[in-house]
Design a protein around this nucleic acid. Structure first.
Lengths: 181, 181
DNA sequence: ACCTGAACACCGTTCAAGT
DNA sequence: ACCTGAACACCGTTCAAGT
């Protein structure tokens, strides 16, 4: 709050005239970020529409690395709801109804949220030694972590975050396709 | 810190002899929770094994509603790594390798993380008026939220969190099945 | 209507000092 | 080896007061 006020070139307590509590500021900030998420043009390919929204969603969070830290609060702002409406209407158009529609919406949303949270966590961990230390710990115990050692978990992987995220998203969409048959 | 010390029946600054910083305590707490996640008996059905681990994972987080708030930090404790090893070895046994293996691991992990985070967020929001207020906002604007109104989003749904979570998990597993063909 | 400074209760953390 | 109290810098927030 004090730093925000300073950033605004204003007295430390002035902010409290415009906002009742710090939580309010955080709520507003979170919803504001969602306003940056582009709503794709509705096409006749629902998978493409969903993919576009989810990728934009993730991109917005990655642009503001502290944003996922705000995710532990109810997301009820108009911008969030507009994105949820777009996602759910896309899925409804695909043929989902009832529980299936709710599950599909939650599934995709929770996947982006989890991904963005873990990605920004690593991105914010400035000290690469933390990661390297953990990697070394893994390599020191090849009997307890045989698979992690072999797969290069936490190592300097050949594949990037984008590739992993897209892979998981495609998996989810393939599963949704399956449910529609 | 002060409250932790009081809880331990000890002077306010005593904790700092056992731990160097508050972050340390949170790291230890997070990894401790993962220690509660039961590792399923390895069976010949990899889907069942994965399902068991993921459900236990989620249950542990829901048991400690503040746990997801700790997720914004690197998960490198031995308990976390042991669960990751189990999950990844299960997926490797299923036939995944290379990027596919990494993507499958990340996909499932990020889905639980996101789900646990949003679920505990709602569970911790003691005031039901927050949710009801948002629901009312949706119903007041049926033109902007046609799908959300129809689906009862944020309403008192007929289906519970467990059902939605299982649905999303099954979707992901179905997608993974697809990738193995 | 909007901004201010003083003040309060509360943090995490340091450090010299005790046993 | 383990614990203590005093102290520091820093929070979010209130409130009476200014314009």
């Amino acid at each position: 709050m004090r730093r925000l006020a300073e950033h605004l070139g204003v007295g430390a307590t002035t902010v409290y005239w415009h906002v009742t509590t710090k939580e309010d500021v955080l709520d507003l900030a979170l919803d504001h970020i969602f306003g940056e998420v582009a709503l794709p043009q509705v096409s006749e390919d629902w998978r493409a529409d969903a993919r576009g929204l989810i990728h934009g969603w993730r991109a917005a969070m990655l642009r503001h690395p502290w944003a996922p830290g705000l995710l532990g609060r109810p997301m009820l702002g108009p911008n969030v709801l507009a994105r949820t409406e777009f996602l759910q209407s896309t899925l409804a158009r695909a043929g989902f109804t009832g529980v299936g529609l709710a599950a599909a919406t939650h599934g995709l949303a929770n996947y982006v949220i989890g991904s963005a949270l873990t990605e920004t966590t690593w991105r914010r961990t400035d000290d690469p030694d933390v990661r390297h230390g953990a990697r070394r710990h893994i390599e020191d115990s090849p009997t307890t972590y045989p698979t992690l050692v072999a797969s290069g978990h936490l190592g300097d992987q050949a594949w990037g975050d984008d590739e992993l995220f897209t892979g998981g998203l495609d998996t989810m969409l393939a599963g949704l396709d399956q449910a529609l048959r």
